[in-house]
Design a protein around this nucleic acid. Structure first.
Lengths: 212, 212
DNA sequence: ACTTTCACAAGTCGCTTGTACCGTTATAAC
DNA sequence: GTTATAACGGTACAAGCGACTTGTGAAAGT
């Protein structure tokens, strides 16, 4: 038997090259030759690791979804001490906004995939994948906040959790379109959270200062 | 001089063929030949009305934006009697959701353009175009509601208006992804409006029943 | 009647695309 | 040392792309 190569690692490298191109020129603007060139390998080699373009796109989508999940989890664990539900929520939501280069690429790639997912059933199934998890995570935090008296109980719903996800998505959209910048989006997010966590007209939960 | 043809009308017909394809297969899946076939004309004729593909895409974007604006205005005017600010807001916002086939195509096309706009400056400038108008319209309604005592004054801000736009955008995204359906999105939108229009823990403004 | 010019249809051009396939090298097993 | 096979690099190919050119018929102006 000849030498063995870590296929998973090679595939991830190629995926990352694809993301760089997709965030700069869109998914359709990234041909196999372009991706190979960006990854610094030959077209033949790329084809050795992905039998077709669709296979590459699907792998890259799964990979970026996995990284996005890791990122969320990292941000939660990075919170100091015993974080309040509100702090957890803010960390997750602000982590989904395109505030730095890394998350900007992530959101751009996600948008590119979304457009395809709208008419590609395979991609759509994959893109929807993480949403229920995220909704559950957020709903859990809302319930926890309600138990602590930091949130009116009637606001601790799955709908509210879903609304939060949708809102961050909408904010991200307009940041990418340069309608406003990341700081403004963050301010609007904080405004929404502040009103969400209002109990009898007063702020509740731990307000958080600064940071992305 | 030979016979004269209404160029504007021809261009609109071609644009509509493009939308049908774009909503079904995405913008990149619509070649000039495909659009011509969908419009039932020859490639040569299409090129007679659009010198380049970019010109066609730009015209179609402007056209769909104009129709979207018309739709909003129609919905406001269709409201019976002297509509409250809340009724106006709900009519506009629900009109932006992909609830029927027409608006579904509109949102799909908008999404396809958005993906391109992320890395195409010309399209981005055009796509941003209607936003400030919409924000102003919404902010005006919020202020009017605050004056009528139906909304706490501190919520009558430009940020709140922008947040509404972003939220509908996010909801639309997930409707297209089949995460939930249009009715659910509408329920979530109504939930948000209900809380927005809460004064001292009680509902204010005119609650609206049913309808899209 | 003649000319001009619009409104097309059809074909061609150079280029890029995804995919298939061939040839070569290197390495591990026997 | 032979063989089998993973790991490539390189090339060829059919299809499709946008852009461009050419040809034709007809109607309006003179």
């Amino acid at each position: 038997m000849p030498k063995k190569v870590d296929h998973e690692a090679r595939r991830q490298e190629i995926s990352e090259a694809l993301w760089r191109l997709a965030s700069a020129r869109g998914l359709e603007g990234a041909s196999l030759r372009d991706v190979a060139a960006e990854a610094g390998i030959s077209l033949g080699r790329l084809q050795h690791y992905f039998r077709s373009k669709d296979e590459m796109l699907l792998f890259a989508l799964r990979h970026i979804n996995r990284l996005a999940g890791d990122r969320i989890r990292e941000r939660i664990e990075a919170l100091p001490g015993e974080p309040t539900p509100r702090e957890v929520l803010r960390a997750c939501l602000s982590g989904m906004l395109p505030l730095d280069e890394r998350s900007r690429v992530g959101v751009l790639v996600g948008a590119a995939y979304f457009t395809r997912a709208a008419y590609d059933e395979t991609l759509r199934a994959e893109a929807k994948n993480g949403i229920p998890q995220l909704r559950t995570l957020f709903a859990d935090q809302l319930r926890r906040a309600a138990e602590r008296g930091e949130l009116p109980p009637e606001r601790a719903t799955e709908d509210e959790a879903m609304l939060l996800i949708g809102m961050v998505d909408g904010l991200s959209t307009y940041v990418l379109l340069d309608v406003y910048d990341g700081r403004t989006a963050l301010r609007m997010l904080d405004g929404h959270l502040a009103r969400l966590f209002e109990v009898n007209g007063a702020a509740a939960g731990a307000p958080v200062a600064g940071g992305g």
